[in-house]
């Protein structure tokens, strides 16, 4: 009887989260709308779709990344994944020039970028995680410094490339929550669907993986294969979110940990949707509150960085990162 009650509680939490997310979405679509409804709805709808996509990509990539690293403070962006995306983008423009780059269909460009990103992140993070028993603090620090390293090289290349090319690149890289790049929505949705299909195939292994590498192997999971698959999914998801909105360091950390906090269950079929819903609430709701209520524009990412950074420090101080 007891565990029936237990399986009901997570669903109740999910239902509440879904309602809150829905309210946030409705507010986003309607608050402060002026002029023709059809225009407002179409315009905001596109932006909403982008935000929901971003929220989903970041929430899922963070939770999965934390599952394979067995840790709740590592996130793809703390480990430098999104800086890597910017670097790949910069190198592409550097190598073929902006003229050629802007001649290429942006969707093709995105696809190529994702492939390079997947390959490179596999090599890099295989190397980092192959030790198995490496110190967590070392990993985090190496990840952060890798991020700085990637950003510095990007900065360097951006200085070298032709100033005209630079303008093109800047357009691409400096998206933010209120200047979401909607031209890539289609292919991003496609990528998301592919990742979703892959996730269904691997869903049953996620919970086993959260027991740790050794327990997972003992239980017959092909650990190398599955973690590689997850790393690929994470790389695709990070590419999607970074392409649409640019780098956001702490958002994933915040939503994943909020999900662990409110969910009375550690199972992925509860945690993953909870994280996605919380991400939607934070992103869409936060955008409404900041943009329409306080009339701040891009500040949302800054507020998230601030809150996330504080959370990170508190988490370390409280000794949560064992």
């Amino acid at each position: 009887m007891r565990h029936e009650a237990q399986s009901r509680a997570p669903l109740a939490v999910l239902a509440v989260l879904a309602v809150v997310a829905l309210v946030a979405i409705v507010c986003f679509m309607t608050v402060g709308a002026r002029g023709s409804w059809s225009f407002v709805l179409a315009f905001r709808g596109l932006k909403l779709a982008a935000l929901v996509l971003i929220a989903t990509a970041i929430a899922i990539s963070t939770v999965l990344f934390q599952t394979i690293t067995g840790n709740r403070i590592l996130t793809p962006s703390i480990m430098g994944f999104d800086a890597l995306y910017a670097l790949v983008q910069t190198v592409l423009v550097f190598l073929i020039g902006a003229g050629a780059a802007s001649g290429v269909d942006p969707r093709l460009m995105f696809a190529g970028n994702v492939i390079v990103m997947v390959l490179f992140s596999l090599i890099l993070y295989r190397f980092l995680f192959s030790g198995g028993t490496r110190s967590l603090h070392l990993l985090m620090l190496v990840g952060i410094v890798f991020g700085v390293f990637f950003r510095s090289i990007s900065g360097f290349l951006q200085r070298i490339i032709d100033p005209n090319d630079f303008v093109v690149l800047q357009d691409r890289l400096f998206a933010s929550f209120n200047t979401v790049d909607t031209s890539l929505l289609g292919i991003a949705t496609g990528g998301m669907v592919l990742v979703g299909l892959a996730m269904i195939r691997y869903l049953h292994t996620f919970d086993v993986l959260s027991l740790g590498r050794e327990a997972a192997i003992t239980l017959g999971v092909d650990y190398r294969h599955v973690t590689t698959a997850i790393l690929v999914m994470v790389a695709v998801l990070v590419s999607i979110s970074t392409a649409l909105v640019g780098p956001v360091t702490f958002f994933g950390l915040l939503v994943a940990n909020l999900a662990y906090l409110v969910m009375p269950s550690g199972k992925h079929r509860h945690i993953l949707p909870a994280a996605v819903l919380i991400a939607i609430v934070t992103l869409v709701g936060g955008q409404v509150v900041l943009e329409r209520v306080f009339a701040f524009d891009t500040a949302l990412s800054v507020v998230i960085e601030f809150a996330g950074g504080l959370f990170f420090i508190l988490y370390l101080v409280k000794g949560g990162s064992r």
Binding site: S135, H137, L138, M140, L141, I144, T249, E305, F306, G309, L310, F312, I313, L316, V317, G319, R322
Partner: peptide, 18 residues
């Protein structure tokens, strides 16, 4: 409680970020 020397720069960098 400093469990690792690496926590020091980690916290410093994050504080810088905040």
């Amino acid at each position: 409680p400093l469990r690792s020397v690496l926590m020091v720069p980690l916290i410093g960098i994050m504080l810088g970020g905040v």
